[in-house]
């Protein structure tokens, strides 16, 4: 039986680790390579690096981070943030990432999903989406809308429709990030995650709001997520990978014990 995955999310700005709170302000909290290695040794199942570097001049710093991680961390990890073309994707894959994460660029150019999927295979392409809860409307019948640029821009696209489209275009996994829950540490958006998991046949990774082990339990059971993204919870030492897995294991959730 497949294990539920715990994925650590590392926001990287100018080669340094940052943790966003409600996407508004960020502050550096350490070295991403060292942190990645520490989580790997602690038994994390997967890693995601989001490049939140503002200036494109500093993009190559991320590739150095990726190759340093790939030389010492032997679990899958994906890289996202600022990947606009198949060539951008190819660079991070060659540097050692297993998968690419596309978000805003895919909303602006959905064919990026199809092109990346054809070039590298669906298993390589993770469609990441930032989702805002909105009143039900004709444009957003699910009550969830896709937003971009870290939540600043509304798109008028229904989140569930976008998830299905992403799957059709060739995405291999979905990261569903709730803007409402992100940074709150008050729990994942269970309703949103469950709707997404029921709408597609590809794995759904829940993101945003994980503040304690119980939140992971909720989203991996009632929320039907295949994996849960964690950040603050680990970065601030609130808990450890081993404690999270022990809790989930005791609650009957199948996780990889190391």
């Amino acid at each position: 039986m497949l294990s539920k995955r715990i994925i650590a999310c590392l926001d990287v700005r100018d080669g340094k680790l940052a943790k966003s709170v409600k996407f508004v302000d960020t502050h550096d909290i350490g070295d991403p390579v060292e942190t990645a290695r520490r989580y790997y040794e602690a038994g994390i199942d997967e890693l995601v690096f989001y490049d939140i570097t503002a200036s494109s001049d500093h993009r190559d710093i991320l590739l150095d981070v990726v190759s340093a991680v790939a030389a010492q961390v032997f679990i899958p990890f994906s890289v996202g943030g600022g990947l606009r073309t198949v060539e951008d994707c190819s660079k991070v894959l060659l540097a050692g990432a297993e998968k690419v994460n596309v978000n805003t660029a895919a909303v602006q150019n959905p064919q990026l999903i199809a092109e990346a999927s054809r070039a590298f295979g669906a298993q390589c392409v993770v469609l990441s989406m930032d989702v805002l809860a909105v009143p039900h409307s004709v444009a957003a019948p699910s009550g969830y809308e896709i937003v971009t640029h870290g939540g600043r821009n509304r798109t008028g696209i229904d989140a569930l429709a976008w998830a299905r489209r992403g799957e059709e275009l060739g995405a291999g996994e979905l990261v569903v990030n709730s803007i409402d829950a992100d940074g709150t540490q008050e729990g994942y958006e269970i309703n949103l995650t469950r709707k997404m998991a029921e709408a597609v046949r590809i794995p759904v990774i829940a993101s945003g709001g994980g503040g304690k082990a119980e939140h992971l339990y909720q989203v991996l059971t009632a929320g039907k997520a295949d994996a849960a993204l964690v950040a603050s919870l680990l970065h601030y030492g609130i808990t450890t990978v081993a404690e999270l897995k022990k809790y989930l294991d005791q609650k009957g959730v199948k996780v990889r014990m190391t």
Binding site: S3, A122, G172, R201, I202, D226
Partner: peptide, 13 residues
């Protein structure tokens, strides 16, 4: 069973 996602992605025994 729609709960069995394809591809089979992740850690398994």
């Amino acid at each position: 069973d729609p709960a069995l996602k394809i591809p089979h992605i992740g850690w398994n025994r």
